[in-house]
Design a protein around this nucleic acid. Structure first.
Lengths: 216, 216
DNA sequence: ACCTGAACACCGTTCAAGT
DNA sequence: ACCTGAACACCGTTCAAGT
């Protein structure tokens, strides 16, 4: 019972049925084995799910374009964040497993290293680079956690929400009703917009932090 | 069996044992009732948890300072985001319940209305206001989801992670090791830093979107 | 050594039966 | 009308017993 075979099957199973329905029994059945055998290789369900997270993070590089040395740090940081976002979109049911623990497996560390490396080599001081990475990472996770776990990422989903907001009482929710028709069609557009806000904010840190110090 | 009494007890129970250990049986026992009685008032566990989320969102206004009319939109937006973050810090085990659904209960709508209202009245066009709110909301949720569910929000937690990063192989993770000593002591500081990046990015949208259009 | 069926103490949900 | 004990079909985890 090779460890990798278990992890591969576990990722498949979470992708199919979600973390709530994922069970040691289902995993054992898929492997044509028994639950007790799984416990010979892993401490328990939680440990297997940590491996699932790290396995998924291993797919991030596949979504990275190869960037010429001429790319700006903005382009490279955005590409990193989008690669993670695209990866999570392919495994929407895995996203909730990112809750409550910083991914410290080898794949999670590689992503952190790459992003902070981009910032350091672009002239950001280390304290800014570290906090900027955290901000971007949490933004991506927060956004990805709103991916419909049932796979309906399509535009009809956003249209339903827009219709709901439009149908509210304008006297009670004036701003919500006013802005509802302008909601973007796709989650991707909303994702890129917010990501650009963060990058723009970072650019300001680099060019003119005059009068603005890091961390109060 | 008043509905409110069930929700209050459910919030208490999730705060104490977390969503994973939360069960209809435990909730029934706490109410000195039976599970079948709960099903007479709620469709099931998921519906109760939706009410738990909305109940917690109802506490956000308690964390809002009263802001004079002279406050800038930056101050008011930051205060809104911090109020949500502080609320979630008081209910760290509830945060994962925010996954996979936009909070559409009355309390969730009130928060959206307030934030978008701030932006509209400050001159942002509706399409920017809507996307900006989404960006801020997802940033806060993403950050809150990293709150230690076991209640150890203290600085020792961040120190442990910093020590871990420092102890890595500098040849393999040079940027991570370089930046590790500069990790902020508190999650609050990191939260505020990233939030300020978003606000700075938004300010640029307002003053000079020259050459930069919203959503391509 | 490695694997397994069966067991234990739990779940969410339902329903016949009580008052 | 409103409530409940017991049942059903599941869990995660463990362990005596098999090969």
């Amino acid at each position: 019972m090779p460890v990798d075979r278990v992890i591969d099957a576990a990722v498949e199973l979470v992708d199919e049925v979600g973390p709530a329905e994922f069970s040691m029994r289902l995993l054992a059945k898929r492997l044509r084995s028994s639950t007790a055998t799984l416990y010979r290789h892993f401490a328990g369900k939680d440990e297997i799910l940590v491996h699932v997270v790290d396995h998924v993070l291993g797919e991030v590089p596949r979504h990275l374009p190869d960037m010429a040395d001429t790319s700006t740090w903005q382009e490279r940081l955005v590409a990193s964040a989008e690669a993670l976002f695209r990866t999570l979109k392919e495994h929407p049911k895995v996203v909730s497993l990112f809750d409550n623990h910083v991914p410290l497996g080898p794949r999670g560390l590689a992503g952190r290293e790459a992003a902070i490396g981009i910032l350091l080599s672009s002239g950001f001081p280390p304290e800014v680079a570290a906090s900027a990475y955290t901000a971007v990472a949490h933004y991506v996770i927060g956004f990805a956690s709103q991916l419909r776990a049932d796979g309906t990422t399509g535009p009809e989903e956003n249209q339903d929400i827009r219709e709901f907001y439009r149908s509210l009482d304008p006297a009670r929710y004036p701003a919500t009703v006013t802005s509802a028709p302008f909601l973007p069609n796709s989650l991707d557009d909303e994702f890129r917009f917010g990501l650009q806000l963060i990058v723009d904010g970072l650019a300001k840190q680099l060019t003119g932090p005059a009068g603005r110090t890091h961390h109060r």
